[in-house]
């Protein structure tokens, strides 16, 4: 009964936050509401005893991805009028995509999970993290490694596509800076002392 209450509380917050993401006028508020939505979703996953996925969601999306998102959104020159200009023009297309998503999700849930009972409670020593690790590194090791390589390639590609070497940009070579000896920079000149003229 208590867990049902928690489930509905989290779901309400999640849905409200998700609605806020698309209705908030300020993009920064949208991004922060998305953070709230991720965090609440991870709370729901914890309730399903999927603690590894829940914590990974917070770690990856809340802790890293959304920080960079905010980083970009905050630096935008936000023109609210311009942002809302094309609302009616994009509404049919957006509505179509949205309806399609709802349809797909609905069919999937209805066909796959309609009438399924709750799974029996897990034994006391069960560790979701351990089970997940075992599956990923034994049964699904090739798909997992291939996915990792694809991601790595994507990162390298993104960097090499956006990296431009400007001719006039100044840079330092730390290795050469460290190599510098005192004799390269300082020259001690010995001079005879002179008498001050009155």
């Amino acid at each position: 009964m208590f867990s049902t209450f928690i489930f509905y509380a989290f779901s309400t917050v999640l849905i409200a936050a998700a609605l806020g993401v698309i209705t908030a006028r300020n993009p920064v508020h949208s991004a922060l509401l998305l953070v709230l939505a991720f965090f609440t979703a991870s709370g729901l996953w914890i309730q399903l005893q999927a603690e590894f996925l829940a914590i990974a969601l917070v770690l990856v999306y809340v802790g890293a991805v959304m920080v960079l998102f905010l980083f970009v959104v905050m630096m935008l020159d936000i023109n609210l009028a311009q942002l809302r200009e094309g609302f009616w023009r994009y509404l049919p297309l957006g509505g179509l995509v949205g309806a399609l998503l709802v349809l797909e999700m609905g069919t999937l849930l209805w066909l796959r999970f309609a009438g399924t009972e709750m799974p029996p409670p897990l034994p006391a020593g069960y560790s979701n993290t351990k089970e997940l690790g075992r599956l990923i590194y034994t049964e699904y090791v090739y798909p997992f490694e291939i996915a990792a390589v694809i991601l790595l390639v994507a990162i390298v590609a993104a960097i090499s596509l956006t990296l431009r070497h400007r001719k006039n940009s100044k840079s330092q070579n730390p290795a050469r800076q460290v190599e510098v000896k005192r004799a390269d920079r300082v020259r001690i000149v010995s001079m005879p002392s002179e008498k001050r003229e009155e």
């Binding site: 920064v28 922060l32 953070v35 603690e51 590894f52 914590i55 990974a56 917070v58 770690l59 809340v62 802790g63 890293a64 920080v67 905010l70 980083f71 905050m74 560790s127 979701n128 993290t129 351990k130």
Partner: peptide, 25 residues
């Protein structure tokens, strides 16, 4: 005493940056 304690600590401490970013903005 949770099983994924180390992960939990990492996830929670990674949220500390929000205070700084939100304050700045």
């Amino acid at each position: 005493n949770i099983d994924a304690g180390l992960l939990y600590v990492m996830a929670i401490t990674s949220m500390g940056v929000y205070g700084v970013i939100i304050a700045g903005w």
